[in-house]
Design a protein around this nucleic acid. Structure first.
Length: 417
RNA sequence: GGGGGAAUAGCGAAGUGGCUAAACGCGACGGACUGUAACUCCGUUCCUUCGGGUUCGUAGGUUCGAAUCCUACUUCCCCCA
């Protein structure tokens, strides 16, 4: 499918500045395009992936994405989508984040037909007087105040620093237009104001016939209206240290039927035919969760690797069947990375005491009840006798004890001595 | 500043001297069912060495016996100024 039609079908387009103009540009040449990310953390989370998925599709279609790491803008703070002033980060933190994000980008985009640049390289060189004389004159405060992002903050307050953010982002677009032949900026729906400000600046500096376009992506929401990409544990990170590949896989696997097709379209590179087939499969046999499985596999492979997919599936199979005996110590460490864990000694204990000391249950009364009800499994083996004894050195090289309460609540004991 | 009312378990809310470790609803947890779902159903829901122990804003008091009566204090709400 032609890239533009494909994006529309995938529901990836919210607003466009000039559909016909962009369409014909895309037809005639390899177009440079960019999206930015401010180094506010040392990893992307899946929310960040939203504009980058679109860039990746353009890349696969032969165009050239550029990622701007906002070393300059990130030291200022984007007011978009926020109702309070950002706390500035230390420069060391910003630099550390930049390096980590760059590595993630290269992992997703490769090095062919792709660039990562840092806007500190140009923003950092502009003197205050140049800023005011060259750029400031071209921005009307009246227009800036009218942007939604700013207007919504006038009640609660916005600093001059954040107010100028849209000028900096506009300068980015202009610089990229000149240096990297970037003609399209892609961003989330809340970036519309910043993007159009950039196009206006390009027109003023480079002439009205300069071809610069903007594309925003719809706000991603779940079918129940809540925010996409959050779990009880917080954001879903791309960094395997923050969100293990197993948890990452599980996040996608657990999507609702009502959302899964939307996400397949958006977050995978499967063809329309494949996705249509999965849609039918979901309707006819929802219990198989074929679409969710495919979604989890595809996204986990894209963000991590095929090996990560296989490992995640092995851990999933073990955890959900309860057969945890066969897991290796490494797999346990991954599968339990963000599950509750507790420290223990290799001392042999009574189950009830063990459970309470582990924090699995709050009181002995509760612990006895759970044991009696058959709700407790130690290392995959059900324990129903309150007098049973737990020996931490029994399995997994004496390093771990896996406690399961109920069907799928796991707790990992790490033997300390 | 004056007057009135209320504080009960995670939350809401009954309970006005013994039958109350405290109804009921929600939530939470466990189980059955299921698709690692929703719904529904069943059970549990202060601690315990299972003998018992400690609870109804806090501290005292009355009583054989107090969540229930009295006093003081704290907090919250309402009305009047």
């Amino acid at each position: 499918m032609e890239i533009f039609a494909d994006l529309k079908w995938r529901g990836a387009i919210n607003q466009l500045t000039d559909e016909d103009g962009l369409q014909s540009l895309l037809n005639e040449k390899q177009v440079g395009m960019y999206a930015g990310i401010d180094p506010t953390a040392d990893s992307m989370h899946i929310g960040h992936l939203i504009p980058f998925m679109v860039l990746k599709r353009f890349q696969l279609a032969g165009h050239k994405p550029v990622i701007v790491i906002g070393g300059g803008t990130g030291s200022i703070g984007d007011p978009s989508g926020r109702n309070s002033e950002r706390v500035l980060q230390t420069m060391e933190q910003v630099m550390h984040n930049e390096a980590a994000l760059t590595a993630q980008m290269v992992h997703l985009f490769g090095t062919e037909n792709f660039r990562v640049v840092n806007n500190r390289d140009w923003l950092g060189k502009i003197s205050l007087l140049d800023f005011l004389r060259i750029y400031g004159k071209l921005f009307s405060v009246n227009t800036m105040l009218a942007k939604d992002v700013v207007a919504s903050r006038l009640e609660t307050g916005i600093s001059f620093t954040e107010f100028t953010y849209q000028i900096l982002q506009s300068v980015d677009f202009l610089e990229l237009f000149k240096q990297e032949d970037v003609q399209l900026q892609v961003g989330g729906a809340d970036q519309w104001g910043n993007i159009t400000a950039g196009i206006d600046l390009i027109h003023r500096m480079e002439g009205n016939d300069a071809k610069a376009y903007g594309l925003t992506i719809p706000l991603m929401l779940k079918s129940d209206g809540t925010k996409f990409g959050k779990t009880a544990g917080g954001a879903v990170w791309l960094d395997a240290e923050k969100t293990s590949p197993y948890e990452f896989y599980q996040f996608w696997f657990n999507q609702e039927d009502a959302d899964v097709i939307k996400y397949l379209k958006y977050f995978t590179f499967l063809s329309k035919e494949e996705i249509d087939a999965l849609e039918v499969a979901t309707q006819e046999n929802p219990r198989a969760r074929e679409a969710q499985r495919k979604l989890a596999q595809e996204v986990t492979r894209f963000v991590h690797s095929q090996a990560a997919v296989e490992e995640a599936e092995r851990i999933s199979a073990a955890l959900f069947s309860g057969d945890v005996q066969d897991l290796t110590a490494t797999e346990i460490a991954q599968g339990f990375a963000n599950m509750p864990s507790f420290a223990l000694t290799s001392e042999v204990k009574n189950v009830v005491d063990f459970i309470v000391d582990a924090g699995v249950d709050a009181s002995k009364r509760q612990a006895r009840e759970d044991v009696t009800n058959g709700a407790i499994r130690i290392n995959g083996t059900q324990v129903t006798d309150v007098e049973a004894i737990v020996d931490p050195s029994a399995m997994y090289d004496g390093k771990f004890v896996i406690v399961r309460r109920g069907k799928k609540k796991y707790f990992l004991g790490r033997v300390q001595d």
